[in-house]
């Protein structure tokens, strides 16, 4: 039965997709395209593009898309919920553990050590996304390649965010509208 197959497949994918986003793509592709043949390779590539243009995390987008293609709305509900269920259980178990034992001194040391790693992780992501927004990719970083409008918008938004003038969602939406207007006036090709 198709819903059962979706359930089993996405439970497994949910339990084993470490590394998030692109990291778990190959595992998902091997199951969805090669083993189950629910999508062709071309369709799978298409979902990745869709995911880049729509809100929401990549893994969820793929589960939702595959589900709806294979078995309509019930399919999308089953696939998506199955995909997040293993994480739901594990995350709650680990959080419980964290709140139970975090006052222990040794655990505190480990957690404190983790904070620089978290900061560095966010920074690595910030560098990639900023390079893409300002220069069109990490390989093109140079003064001449800079997209002046994007740099200006980002800098204004950082100041507004730091001064707590706006929330993050507003910053992104405001950038979208401002950017679209500027690019339209400049007649920029997209």
């Amino acid at each position: 039965m198709i819903l059962w197959d979706l359930l089993v497949t996405f439970l497994l994918l949910g339990a084993f997709s470490f590394g998030g986003g692109m990291g778990s793509m190959e595992l998902i592709r091997s199951r969805v395209v090669e083993q189950r043949m629910w999508l062709t390779n071309a369709e799978f590539t298409d979902i990745i593009s869709i995911s880049e243009m729509t809100p929401g995390p990549l893994g969820i987008n793929i589960a939702s898309f595959v589900g709806v293609r294979v078995a309509g709305v019930p399919g999308t509900v089953v696939a998506t919920m199955a995909y997040v269920l293993p994480a739901f259980v594990i995350v709650i178990a680990l959080s419980w553990f964290y709140y139970r034992y975090r006052s222990l001194k040794g655990i505190q040391g480990v957690l404190k050590g983790l904070r620089p790693a978290v900061a560095a992780m966010v920074m690595a992501s910030a560098v990639k996304i900023t390079a893409n927004a300002w220069f069109g990719g990490q390989d093109n970083i140079s003064f001449g390649n800079a997209n002046a409008a994007a740099v200006l918008i980002s800098l204004v938004m950082i100041v507004l965010l730091q001064n707590k003038k706006i929330g993050a969602v507003q910053a992104i939406l405001l950038s979208g509208v401002t950017g679209a207007l500027i690019y339209a006036v400049l007649g920029m090709a997209v």
């Binding site: 243009m53 904070r115 620089p116 978290v118 900061a119 966010v122 920074m123 992501s125 910030a126 996304i129 900023t130 893409n132 927004a133 300002w134 409008a149 994007a150 740099v151 918008i153 980002s154 800098l155 204004v156 938004m157 950082i158 965010l161 730091q162 993050a168 910053a171 992104i172 939406l173 405001l174 950038s175 979208g176 509208v177 401002t178 950017g179 679209a180 207007l181 500027i182 690019y183 339209a184 997209v190």
Partner: peptide, 30 residues
């Protein structure tokens, strides 16, 4: 769709700003 493509392009700068802001806050905290 041309308008959607423009909006998406503009939003990239905003996403970059949010990430830079978070990086600053977290490094300060560390």
């Amino acid at each position: 769709n041309y308008v959607i493509a423009l909006l998406l392009k503009g939003m990239q700068a905003g996403v970059a700003a949010v990430l830079i802001h978070t990086t600053i806050m977290m490094c300060r905290n560390v």
